[in-house]
Structures are given as C-alpha cells and as structure tokens.
Amino acid sequence: MSSNDSSFSKEQQNLLKAFKKQITHPHSSKIAAQPELKKAQLTATNEEPNDADLFKNALQGVKAFDNSNIAKVVNSHAHKKPDAKTLAKRAAAEGLRDIDHAELSDTQAMLNPVASQASLSYRIATLQHKVFEDLKAGNLRWYEAVDLHGCTVEDARSAVLQIIQMAKDENQNVIKIVHGKGPEAVLKTYVNSWLRQHRDVLAFVSAPEKQGGTGAVLVLLKRAEKNPKFNP
C-alpha cells in the first residue's frame, strides 16, 4: 500500500511516527528536559546572597577595636563598708575628742529602748521638709557606711563617732549605719540614742527596704564649715 492510498492524513502520520519514536526511545523526553534542568540549577546558583553572607562580606578587612586604654567606671556605692572594729581601733589610736564621747550618754538608751522592727525617725526643727523627705526616700547619696554587727557597745560607739568624723573630713553630709535588728535590738537602741545627742546630726531615718530597712539608718550631717575642702 502506497502512502497515497493510506487512509491517514499527513498530520496523523507525523503524530504516529512521533508516538513510535517515544515508545522506541523512552529516555528521549528526559534528555530533552536536561537543558531546562541545567537552566534551573544555574538560576539557583545565581540567586542573591542571604543576610549572613552579606554581613560576612561587610566585615572583611575590619579590625577589632583596642579597648585596653579605656578607664573602668567605678560605682561609689560598690565598695565594701568599713569594718566597725577597725574604725573603733582607729578612733582609739587617733583619740577622738573627749567632748564627742561626753555628748553620747547611754542614759537615754537605757530609758528609751526601741523595738526590733521599729522605724526610727528624727529631725531638728529647722530642717527643710523636702530635704527630710528625700532622706526618707533614699534619694540622698550616702558617702560611706559602717556595719556594726558583732560589735560591743563601746566598739559601736567609737565606730559611729569615727565614721561621722570621716564624713566631716571629706565634707560629706550623708552616711549609713547598719545596726541590725536582733531580738533585743541593743545596738539599734544605742544608735538611736547617740545620733539624737550628736551635735552634727541634723536628721536620721530607717533606710528604705532595699537599703536595709529597719536594720539601718541614713544620717544627715551638718556640713563642715571650717573644712579646707569646703567651698561655699
């Protein structure tokens, strides 16, 4: 049978040949698809870099900063409280004025004991109300603090006098005294009495809770008028 006598059209014959070729060579379609696959891989390779790659590229050639000559910032409240017994020994060695010792009578302490959890408060009549409220709130920065735990009454007395003198020498007017709040509150009672008698004390209050609460007092002192470091 000749091609002219075939009942199939030329288009149908071409389709038939293509079908036979696909059956005879099943991998030919995959081979034809390979250029498309390579194109897709090339496109993936040429994608824009991510943020990590960009950051690494930006840091190339950058040197670490030399911070060896940067001064450290020191918090004035970070230093340890002076040891009360050391202050007492220093007071004995330097010889605090007798008039200071004479002012601090123990009679008032014996007659007016305070409770362990009592909140202490004292101010002279002429002190400004705002200053006193700032002291109560802990807004006034204290110069130095002393911890009286473990002290005898006499050591505690000397330590209190010594730290007041230290503040006066540095023309500072706020100190902190940690007296504790044991069951009998002995040192707390004596500190309450001594500070009320001291001529340089303008006011004192139990510290805010975060600064010791009823186990410590913040003390406001007079400025040292004749201190050579004092500049009115």
Rank of each mutant, 00 (worst) to 15 (best):
N4G: 08
S7E: 13
S7G: 09
F8H: 08
F8D: 10
S9D: 04
K10E: 04
E11F: 02
Q13P: 00
N14F: 09
L15F: 12
L16H: 12
A18V: 07
F19E: 14
F19Q: 13
K20L: 13
K21I: 09
Q22V: 09
I23G: 04
H25L: 11
H25Y: 01
K30R: 14
A32T: 03
A32F: 04
K38H: 05
K38P: 00
K39L: 09
K39P: 00
Q41F: 02
Q41S: 01
T43A: 14
E47F: 03
E48P: 04
D53P: 00
L54G: 05
F55P: 00
N57I: 06
N57M: 09
A58Q: 03
A58D: 10
L59A: 09
L59F: 12
V62M: 10
D66K: 12
N67A: 08
S68E: 10
N69S: 13
I70M: 04
K72C: 00
V73M: 04
H79A: 12
K80P: 08
K81M: 14
P82G: 01
P82D: 02
A84L: 03
K85Q: 04
R90Q: 14
A93P: 00
L96Y: 09
L96V: 03
R97H: 03
R97W: 00
I99G: 00
I99D: 08
L104D: 07
L104G: 04
S105C: 10
T107G: 07
L111W: 01
A118M: 06
S119E: 10
Y122R: 02
I124R: 13
A125L: 12
Q128G: 01
H129N: 03
H129T: 04
D134W: 11
G138T: 06
R141Q: 10
V146W: 00
V146R: 05
D147Q: 15
L148Q: 01
L148W: 15
H149T: 15
G150Q: 14
C151F: 10
C151G: 07
C151P: 06
T152H: 15
T152P: 10
T152R: 03
T152M: 08
E154T: 14
R157Y: 11
V160K: 08
L161E: 11
Q165P: 02
Q165H: 11
A167Q: 10
D169F: 11
E170W: 02
E170L: 00
E170D: 15
I175C: 05
K176I: 07
K176V: 03
I177M: 02
I177E: 06
P183F: 06
A185L: 08
T189D: 13
W194C: 02
R196G: 11
R196W: 02
H198L: 06
D200F: 07
V205Y: 10
V205Q: 05
S206D: 04
A207T: 09
E209P: 02
K210L: 05
K210P: 01
Q211T: 07
Q211P: 00
G212P: 05
T214C: 06
G215T: 07
G215I: 06
L218M: 13
V219M: 05
L220E: 09
K222R: 11
K226D: 14
P232E: 08
